[in-house]
């Protein structure tokens, strides 16, 4: 059930199970470091949660349209009128670091590239 194999089929029982390596991969995708101890705790918990929620597969729903939102609304626009925006100083006030009226961030490129 690792992520290197072919994509799983959509049958009700093909989707259960999550390995420790898979949790580590998902944590990387989520940009979240996790310790070994956290991985040890998370893998069985996620396994238990997935077994509980996999019941959605029991519902025969081939012809049922999905609902993404309880109240159907599409393309809600406001009038295209200029209005004052948040002052830069206010937006920067809660930033971890700011410089010259901008957010200061760690380097985003590898120095070797």
């Amino acid at each position: 059930m690792g992520r290197t194999g072919p994509p799983p089929t959509k049958g009700p029982h093909a989707i259960m199970g999550i390995t420790r390596d898979e949790v580590a991969h998902l944590a990387r995708l989520s940009r979240m470091s996790v310790t070994d101890a956290e991985l040890d705790a998370l893998a069985p918990q996620l396994e238990a949660i997935l077994s509980a929620v996999a019941r959605v597969a029991e519902v025969a729903a081939a012809d049922i349209p999905p609902t993404s939102h309880a109240v159907p609304l599409t393309n809600v626009f406001r009038p295209d009128v200029a209005r004052p925006s948040l002052p830069a100083a206010d937006a920067l006030a809660g930033a971890p670091a700011a410089e010259d009226g901008r957010f200061r961030v760690p380097r985003i490129l590898d120095p070797d590239e």
Binding site: V53, V56, V59, A61, I64, P66, T67
Partner: peptide
């Protein structure tokens, strides 16, 4: 599948 359940 969860979104379809939501419809139901």
């Amino acid at each position: 599948q969860a979104q379809k359940v939501r419809t139901l």
